[in-house]
């Protein structure tokens, strides 16, 4: 019984070098984007422009992680949209809470 269980029934498929190359390419892009954030953190002045650049780069990285690493793009379209569309609620949360924070600031100082 034990020897039977350990017997492999799965056939090992050889490596697809192209796929693996694509994974490393994505990793390289992520590292480049992070380095750009790093350089900007020290060279550009703090302000709304820099923050927008940071947020843009972050969402760009998030896209790569979700699409290339988590293969969300290869899932069925209804699954893809059921994950992406609910995130719209976060837009409301950002607007509501930033407004709230600004008002508290004005009340306090």
């Amino acid at each position: 019984m034990a020897s039977h269980e350990n017997k492999s029934t799965l056939e090992v498929i050889p490596r697809n070098e192209e796929k693996i190359k694509k994974i490393w390419k994505t990793a390289f892009i992520l590292l480049i984007l992070t380095s750009i954030e790093f350089v900007f953190a020290f060279t550009l002045d703090r302000g709304i422009l820099l923050y927008l650049i940071f947020i843009g780069l972050t969402i760009w990285k998030a896209k790569y992680i979700m699409m290339e690493f988590m293969h969300l793009g290869e899932e069925a379209k209804p699954l893809f949209y059921s994950i992406i569309v609910p995130l719209i609620f976060l837009v409301w949360l950002v607007i509501a809470l930033m407004r709230e924070g600004t008002d508290i600031f004005l009340l306090r100082w």
Binding site: L97, M98, G101, T102, I104, F105, R108
Partner: peptide, 16 residues
Amino acid sequence: FAAFLIAYAAIRVSYP
């Protein structure tokens, strides 16, 4: 996590 981070942003802008 988004609630955490957005709360961070809201509290941050409420301080100078």
